[in-house]
Amino acid sequence: MKAKEAKEAKEAKKAKNATAAFEQSLATPQKQVYVLQLYVTGMTPRSARAIANAKKICETHLQGQYDLSVIDVYQQPQLAKDAQILAVPTLVKKLPLPLRRIIGDLSDRDQVLLGLNLKPKP
């Protein structure tokens, strides 16, 4: 968990420099890394559903090129505040840009893929 956090912080720093990130993403078009954060509230059924859905979608569509971290807003309210989290669960796509918030239990797979830019907008 700790290693993950450190990595996240590093990634967040990177994200701040949008131009650099953009150029980086241009340089490595094939191996885009998806930095995802899933904010949940404890182990409620909805949280569990959201985590399961997220993992499933990532494994199916982003195998090997994603970094998913799960954050409990009860445990780490400051992170939730910094990330401007209102609705829970929220899956934040920090990278690649643009930033997207996918809220809900991620049960609508098409909608999630749309949010992750893995599917063109209809």
């Binding site: 997207r100 996918i102 809220i103």
Partner: peptide, 11 residues
Amino acid sequence: IEETGEYDLEG
């Protein structure tokens, strides 16, 4: 924001 199912405003 993209909405995908149920959520609440616990945040």
